[in-house]
Computed example of a mutant assay.
Amino acid sequence: MLLVDDADTAPRGRNGWLRRIEQLDPVKDCQEIHRITAGYEFPWDYQRSLEFALFRTYCVPTISALLRRTGEFESRPQKRYDDTALLMAELLEHGYDSPRGRESLRTVNRMHGRYEIDNADMLYVLCTFIYEPLDWIDRYGWRPLNPHERLACFHFYRQVGIRMGIRDIPDDFQALYRFKTDFEREHFRYTDDNHAIGVYTRDLFCSWFPRPFRPAVTVGVNAMLDPMMLSAFGFRSAPAWMTSAGRRALRGRSRLVRLLPPRRRSKATRDRRNRTYPGYPVGYRPGDLGADRDYGCPRG
């Protein structure tokens, strides 16, 4: 598998990466295609959409109940966010069968192996990593996704799921999407655990902004949630004008990004919101990450 990270070999022109994607096979080359899409073409969109993808999983009572029992969200929400984001970024940047990719998967499986987690819950979380970013980019991306990118994302995460030991993963894009929508219809409902984990997560998002802006960010986060999520968390709907303004701002951003030159280096593991592991990945291995690794992050 070719993984490009040399600025001198980046394709020329705003649609250079897209031309390269069109030359690749979405099954055999799913890792390379997905790395280009998420690391070069839509890194900001992927980071934001995966934040809300994880947020979406907390609408499932069995998932939020487990997360609340661990105490990680209450005590160290930033660390848990960083662990998850960086482990997924390692898989994206290096591939799931690379040395760092295999180490990342061992870390993920080590953390999950400490708990009894239902296979359907694991499969649902996997679904959100596929379909939430695709839906986000359909709404707010600077260009339409190519069919190769959709299929590559599906096959990439399907292979990740297989290596995580998730069972009964459909081998068809639409079949897995039907599982996701059926699962949400059956399981999304309000619980106190949902509400608590939702508040911890929303407060984390707010902590990334100066204190005077945080009340507005709280309402802004609610504006990004659909009615099913608002109900499952017990959150109030944002004013219609704010929801509309937020969507217009995201679409306006996409028009500006369309005018920029193509990205020449992947941003997969370079997230400025990472506060737990300064300078990552310099000086760190994927095995250093995880809820059972402290690294000077005390509880409370």
Score class of each variant (00 low, 15 high):
Phe55Lys: 10
Arg56Glu: 10
Tyr58Gly: 02
Tyr58Phe: 11
Cys59Asp: 12
Cys59Tyr: 10
Ile63Asn: 06
Ile63Gln: 01
Ala65Met: 13
Ala65Thr: 13
Leu66Cys: 14
Leu67Gln: 02
Leu67Tyr: 00
Arg68Glu: 12
Arg68Trp: 07
Thr70Met: 15
Thr70Gly: 15
Gly71Ile: 13
Gly71Arg: 14
Glu72Tyr: 06
Phe73Ala: 04
Glu74Gln: 12
Glu74Pro: 03
Glu74Asn: 08
Ser75Lys: 02
Ser75Asp: 04
Arg76Phe: 03
Arg76Ser: 06
Pro77Asp: 08
Pro77Arg: 07
Pro77Thr: 05
Gln78Ile: 00
Gln78Met: 05
Lys79Asp: 01
Arg80Gln: 04
Arg80Ser: 09
Tyr81Leu: 08
Tyr81Arg: 05
Tyr81Asn: 01
Asp83Gln: 12
Asp83Trp: 09
Asp83His: 10
Thr84Tyr: 10
Thr84Glu: 07
Ala85Ile: 03
Ala85Cys: 08
Ala85Gln: 11
Ala85Glu: 08
Leu86Arg: 05
Leu86Met: 11
Leu87Asp: 05
Met88Gly: 05
Ala89Trp: 06
Glu90Pro: 04
Glu90Cys: 06
Leu91Thr: 09
Leu92Gly: 10
Gly95Met: 07
Asp97Arg: 15
Asp97Leu: 15
Ser98Gly: 05
Pro99Ser: 02
Pro99Gly: 04
Pro99Met: 02
Pro99Val: 03
Arg102Asp: 12
Arg102Ile: 11
Arg102Met: 14
Glu103Arg: 11
Glu103Cys: 12
Glu103Phe: 03
Glu103Val: 04
Arg106Phe: 14
Thr107Gln: 15
Asn109Ile: 01
Asn109Lys: 01
Asn109Pro: 03
Arg110Ala: 06
Arg110Phe: 03
Arg110Leu: 04
Arg110Cys: 02
Met111Phe: 08
His112Gly: 06
His112Arg: 04
His112Gln: 08
Gly113Leu: 01
Gly113Ala: 05
Arg114Met: 08
Arg114Gly: 02
Tyr115Thr: 11
Tyr115Gln: 13
Glu116Cys: 02
Glu116Ser: 13
Glu116Val: 12
Ile117Gln: 00
Asp118Ser: 10
Asp118Pro: 11
Asp118Met: 05
Asn119His: 06
Asn119Pro: 06
Asn119Trp: 07
Asn119Phe: 04
Ala120Val: 08
Ala120Pro: 00
Ala120Asp: 13
Ala120His: 11
Met122Trp: 09
Leu123Thr: 00
Tyr124Leu: 02
Tyr124Met: 02
Tyr124Glu: 09
Tyr124Arg: 10
Val125Thr: 09
Val125Cys: 04
Val125Ala: 06
Leu126Ala: 09
Leu126Cys: 06
Cys127Gly: 03
Phe129Asn: 09
Phe129Thr: 10
Ile130Glu: 05
Tyr131Gln: 06
Glu132Gly: 07
Glu132Tyr: 00
Glu132Gln: 03
Pro133Gly: 14
Pro133Thr: 14
Pro133Ile: 12
Pro133Tyr: 11
Pro133Val: 13
Leu134Pro: 00
Leu134Asn: 12
Leu134Gly: 12
Leu134Gln: 14
Asp135Gln: 15
Asp135Leu: 14
Asp138Leu: 13
Asp138Ala: 14
Tyr140Asp: 10
Gly141Met: 03
Gly141Cys: 07
Gly141Asn: 02
Trp142His: 15
Trp142Gly: 06
Trp142Gln: 13
Arg143Asn: 03
Arg143Thr: 00
Leu145Glu: 06
Asn146Leu: 15
Asn146Tyr: 14
